Computed example of a mutant assay.
Amino acid sequence: MVVTNDQALAPKPHYPILDGLRGVAAIIVVTFHLTEPLGTGHLDILVNHGYLAVDFFFLLSGFVIGYAYDERWPKMSVGNFSKRRIERLQPMVVLGMTLGALGFYFTDSTIWPLIHTVPVWKLLLVLLIGYTILPVPLSLDIRGWEEMHPLNSVGWSLFFEYIANLLYALWIRKFSNTALTILVGLSAIALAHLAISHGDVSGGWTLNVEQVRIGLTRTMYPFFAGLLLCRVAKPTRIKNAFLWCSLLVALVLYMPRIGGAEQLWLNGLYESVCIILVFPLIVYLGASGVLSTQRENKLCTFLGEISYPLYMVHYPLVYFYVAWISNHKGVTLEQAWPYALLILLGAIVLAYAALKWYDEPVRHWLRKKSSKTAPVGA
């Protein structure tokens, strides 16, 4: 008898508030990238801690992976788990890279003076590598920002997401709660050391030893803390949790830089506390929350649906925005905000269109194709 993936691994009830919070964080990421080019450096960006949304995503991902798969391993192989994760993540990776490639030669800007000297074969090579989410070496950094994914900057976090998923499937899923707690504790120490010694955790998008170390450090604690939280936490019932958790997420990510250039460690301490303590608290409260109205449920559903597409398609639009700012020196926030708002709204519309007209149909086709060959216990 052949059992389909959907039959063998029927979806468990999910946490709608966590979906909504992922969408809130994704929107804040876009605002971070839109205010980033208006700053003079990393100390005075308006949305100064927006990059911490990535660490929040990792923690949410670990929690959801543990909830969805921890109890299914007797009926699931590592190969089937990997296939399901690829089906979920890879279609939007392909679309994001494609959009980045299509816009590459149209971002005429003084900030990328050599962009039009890149031969088509090199662009296509970077695109094909990008489709696999594997990082490109600095010799293929065709944009010049020292990014491992120069066609869609945010791809670096998906690279580390895949690493965390593989570590979970091959090894860490077998850990007892005690062993997992030790791993999470050691990872927390490494994260705090990184943040306090550097002044922040920003980094991870370049293919060199230092940046890969930062990326792994940023991934290990939140992802596996999310897994541990899923295993040990006993959610209660909390009213208005979505509102309060959304406000907490916004407060953390919109907090101005702390300590300045003279006391970088203070900002690192702030980020350590946020990632190690505040983010798990937010996820716990979100998992414990109950939705009281149909409107709130629809909002969380919408935000959850667009969160991943928004994260994956917004940066190709941001490239045009950054090019416009670089070509108009001295642009102020007052001058830029109408264009920034247009990019934000356009990214949301694009994300929703990508979800409905591309991501969902492609994933449905992949699941249908996969189910025809999935044996019992796969």
Rank of each mutant, 00 (worst) to 15 (best):
97 M>H: 15
97 M>D: 15
97 M>W: 04
99 L>H: 03
99 L>N: 03
99 L>C: 07
99 L>F: 11
100 G>F: 08
100 G>H: 08
103 G>D: 08
104 F>H: 11
107 T>A: 15
108 D>C: 09
110 T>M: 08
111 I>W: 09
112 W>Y: 12
114 L>A: 02
117 T>N: 13
117 T>F: 12
118 V>Q: 12
122 K>T: 14
122 K>G: 00
123 L>K: 11
126 V>P: 09
126 V>F: 04
127 L>Q: 05
129 I>L: 00
131 Y>E: 10
132 T>Q: 13
134 L>A: 11
134 L>G: 01
135 P>N: 06
136 V>W: 10
138 L>I: 04
141 D>F: 06
147 E>Y: 07
147 E>I: 03
150 P>D: 08
150 P>F: 04
150 P>G: 08
151 L>C: 11
153 S>V: 03
153 S>H: 15
154 V>F: 00
155 G>I: 02
155 G>L: 12
155 G>K: 10
158 L>S: 06
158 L>Y: 00
158 L>I: 15
160 F>Y: 15
161 E>A: 05
163 I>M: 15
163 I>R: 02
164 A>N: 09
164 A>M: 14
164 A>W: 08
166 L>W: 12
168 Y>N: 07
169 A>N: 02
170 L>C: 05
172 I>H: 00
175 F>I: 10
175 F>C: 07
175 F>P: 03
176 S>D: 02
176 S>P: 05
179 A>M: 15
179 A>G: 02
183 L>P: 00
184 V>C: 05
184 V>N: 01
186 L>A: 15
186 L>R: 01
187 S>W: 07
187 S>V: 14
188 A>E: 13
188 A>P: 11
188 A>F: 13
190 A>R: 07
190 A>I: 04
190 A>H: 01
191 L>G: 04
194 L>M: 14
194 L>I: 02
195 A>R: 11
196 I>Y: 00
197 S>R: 03
199 G>D: 01
201 V>A: 09
201 V>L: 07
203 G>Y: 10
203 G>D: 07
204 G>W: 12
205 W>D: 12
207 L>Y: 01
208 N>T: 09
208 N>L: 04
209 V>N: 12
211 Q>R: 11
212 V>I: 15
212 V>H: 07
214 I>S: 04
214 I>D: 09
215 G>M: 07
216 L>E: 03
218 R>G: 04
219 T>R: 00
221 Y>I: 02
224 F>T: 10
225 A>C: 12
226 G>R: 05
227 L>W: 06
229 L>N: 03
232 V>F: 11
